[in-house]
Nucleic acid binder design. Structure first.
Lengths: 229, 229
DNA sequence: CTAGAATGTGAGCTATCACTCGGTTTGGCT
DNA sequence: AGCCAAACCGAGTGATAGCTCACATTCTAG
């Protein structure tokens, strides 16, 4: 397998249009193989073949397999962050709406985010822990959205039960992320996306001690569910 | 790497005491390397070396690397299940206690369970999806405890908000598992184990629509926290 | 048009992997 | 003591992985 040599320092950055096309093709191929066949089958030779470039070209832009996957992880995290901000925006979290509406909006954004490329997300989450460079990329992004949640909790503090914002952020983000993630992976038949959003809203509002029961939107099938998944 | 040969059918079962010691050493070594260096570094040669046996002996009892990891996963799941049952027991979930006490008990058991061997659990969860034999082992166990939760929800149905037991089971088990898991992995400094149990109890009771605020046990440091972690 | 930089190529090197097989050692029988 | 199966051994096999390097091709600037 991979000899444990000292890592080459880094690689060229593409400047011509041609090179950018190549780099893009390589990243796309990496994503495709990761999703379709998993990390183990994602050899650099296979990636190059699928991308329609030679193995040499791959190593001109990515110094190692780890660097390749890390680059993909970074791209994925970045685009996810962009999507999340686009959908909720800091504005939405600070606007004049009710707490329930804001929570619901945030959860819908999270669900939509995961639906966008669930399979890639899963593979990256599985493999990223063993590639330090990629951990940084993903952490950087998730920390940023965690900060947004904590800020919101603090801004709404007197409408919630007494809580430690840092702790609550951890509990909420982890729960919402995990349930969404697993629902998209396993797709239990009794849990469609609309129900998922309802349940997560319950979960969050209940935890925050917000008395007002959310107006349940379940069983309005077909309207919302069609938009996701 | 591994040639994709057809799998050998199975291997001998140890009968002499000597052989059982060998098998045990191999499984221990596998767990150790998985925890310390991850799946990628966990080669069969490395396992044999660490176990102090020859590679030939390993293949006398495990027909392939997959079978080896699957066996470890099974052992791990089985012992986890045993621990969980020992700590809560079906009796505890059906006893005459308050809902809050039961929820708290269950959560404490979950936390204790994860603390027991969090690192091995993490690695197995990461790698198990690519080893079908091991998925079965883990699923078998987690399904069993999921069934217990659903049964409890049904037995307490009229004391809770209206809910679909299957959906609620999914949401609760996933959340509690994820938060516990992540807390043990990342050990955020502001979240000690006692707080974790408190917060998760809040989360679950809030979701279930149980009005009674739990008597908070936070800031009774040193008493409970010393027992875990 | 031409030089040189940027980009692309792929056969092949080496380390490592999962796994086999012919042989030696061990331990429970009688 | 002597036998035989169970247990153990580890150099070796075939395959594949990550990655390099000498060379070919394309682009761009003067």
């Amino acid at each position: 397998m991979a000899p444990a040599r000292p890592k080459p320092p880094s690689r060229k950055h593409p400047t011509q249009r041609r090179a950018k096309v190549t780099v893009d093709a390589i990243l796309r191929a990496t994503a495709h193989i990761l999703k379709a066949e998993g990390f183990a089958a994602c050899s650099t030779n296979a990636v190059a073949r699928r991308a329609g470039v030679s193995i040499g070209s791959l190593y001109q832009y990515f110094s190692s397999k780890e660097a390749l996957v890390a680059a993909l992880a970074e791209q994925h995290a970045e685009s996810g962050q962009a999507l999340l901000l686009e959908m909720v925006g800091l504005a939405a979290l600070e606007g004049p709406q009710t707490i329930e509406a804001q929570v619901r909006r945030y959860i819908e954004a999270m669900v939509r985010l995961h639906a966008d490329d669930a399979e890639l997300h899963r593979v990256l989450m599985q493999q990223v822990p063993s590639i330090p460079e990629a951990v940084a990329a993903v952490n950087r992004v998730s920390n940023r959205s965690g900060d947004a949640v904590r800020a919101w909790l603090e801004s709404r503090r007197d409408e919630l039960r007494p809580l430690d914002p840092a702790v609550a952020t951890f509990v909420l983000v982890t729960s919402v992320e995990a349930v969404t993630h697993l629902q998209l992976m396993e797709r239990p038949k009794q849990l469609d996306v609309a129900t998922l959003v309802d349940e997560l809203t319950w979960l969050v509002l209940g935890y925050l001690g917000v008395a007002s029961k959310p107006a349940r939107r379940r069983r309005q099938q077909g309207r919302r569910s069609a938009r996701f998944v």
